[in-house]
Simulated scan of single mutants.
Amino acid sequence: MTDLLTVKNLTKSFDESGPVVDGLDFTVREDEIFALLGPSGCGKTTCLRLIAGFERADRGSVEIAGKLLESPDHHIAPQNRGIGFVFQDYALFPHLSALENVAFGLTDIPKHKRNVYAEEVLCRTGMGDYKDRSPNELSGGQQQRVALARAIAPKPKFVLLDEPFSNLDAMLRDSMRKEVRSILKKAGMSALLVTHDQEEALSFADRIAVMNDGKIEQIGTPEEVYYQPKTKFVAQFLGRTNLFHADANGGSEINTGLGRMRLNCNACGKVLCSIRPEHLTLEKATNEHPDEIGKVVSREFKGHDITYHVELNDRKYLVHTDNRVIFEPDDSVVIKPLESAVILEDEN
């Protein structure tokens, strides 16, 4: 795949407290949906605004299809970057109909053809029957689809999505994610999504960059960043996990409080490890290894699965099992790993 967006050493500060965006390097490929995922205040929206041209970079550069858009000495105005933007609040013109909102930016199309083309784009987003309605006559999901139609109508090379699902209720969020992803894929457009929602990034994006304190800690597919986190922050931010220290002797196995456990790679010395709760299971305790017997402290029944809180050797572990593994509080159990533990780069 060819890289469409290239971000190099992108840096931005607003005051003397330090950079909000600190030396970001990443690429987005053609026909790829890429997500910047991180907590509030980590710099992801500032990065989006730098790419869009709403902010000026202190250092670094932004290129699309080899064309320089942003650097300390070069700045192309937002309207000339060939980028579509879907805002968090949709930012539709309240006095214009859905059709007029979409047609507004089609300045390269002859005036007498704009409404025809705008209606075609609205139909692609499932909003053709609502073309004459004003934004205040539309639901949140419908407004979002109109905003997306407006963003893709000029056929931009790239679309930026600034937390576009955050104003929707949980059920609508899920369905709209699927719809918007399908629309972008069918249109063959690359997109950059900014979100603080882990589930949203994992289900929507082809690749994810996990941000923390202005920096990118890891880039990879949803499966890579979830199952093979590189740092403690990534392991904890992407979902619940069990962290523990252990002494490795150069091989791919270690002795832990849970017994002998495989590692995802060879290691030597003191290491910090992570293992997801669903990569553990519970078995009824026997007297064979008394030092590995734990006690169920509590459990959370969720229908399709159960989360157990287990105390073992003065430590507490989380274990997710399917609903056929049944234990009660105070039961004696043995925690068994189903997958390898992952070694993390940091120990803080």
Rank of each mutant, 00 (worst) to 15 (best):
I306K: 06
E288Q: 15
T307K: 00
L238Q: 11
Q236L: 13
T221G: 06
F244N: 12
A246N: 04
N313C: 03
V296H: 03
L238F: 10
P290N: 12
S252E: 09
A235Y: 00
I216R: 01
I326N: 06
V297G: 04
H289K: 05
H309D: 05
Y227G: 00
L258C: 12
P277K: 14
E311T: 02
R276A: 12
Y227K: 03
L312H: 01
P277Y: 14
F244V: 10
R276P: 03
A246T: 11
H309S: 05
H304D: 12
R240G: 14
L258Y: 05
N249T: 14
N323S: 04
G250L: 10
E278R: 11
G220A: 10
E283G: 04
G294H: 01
D247Q: 08
P277W: 11
H289Y: 09
D314H: 13
Q236W: 02
E253N: 09
T307A: 09
Q228D: 08
S298D: 12
A246C: 07
R262H: 07
Y227D: 03
Y317W: 06
I306T: 10
G294A: 05
R260V: 14
D314G: 09
P290T: 02
K270S: 07
E300T: 03
S274M: 13
T286G: 12
L263E: 08
G269H: 11
E253H: 08
Q218F: 09
A246S: 07
F327R: 01
H309Q: 10
V234A: 00
M261E: 01
E288W: 05
T241G: 11
N242L: 11
A248P: 06
D314K: 14
N242M: 12
E292P: 00
G239P: 01
D247V: 06
E288A: 15
G239E: 05
T221A: 06
V296T: 15
E300A: 15
V234Q: 00
Y317I: 15
G303T: 06
T241L: 12
I326L: 06
I216V: 03
G259N: 05
N313I: 13
D322Y: 00
F237W: 05
T256F: 13
A267S: 06
R276D: 08
A235D: 12
Y308N: 01
P277I: 14
T286D: 14
C273F: 03
I254H: 00
L238D: 02
A267T: 00
K215H: 13
R299N: 06
N264F: 07
R262L: 03
Q228S: 11
E253I: 13
T321K: 00
E278G: 08
R260P: 00
R276C: 08
L258S: 05
G239I: 04
Y226P: 07
E311Q: 15
T321N: 01
L272S: 11
N264R: 15
F327A: 07
L258P: 02
K302T: 10
T307L: 10
T281L: 07
E288T: 15
T221S: 10
T307P: 10
E224Q: 04
L312R: 04
E300I: 01
P290V: 03
T241P: 10
I293D: 00
V297T: 15
K232P: 05
C265Q: 11
P277R: 15
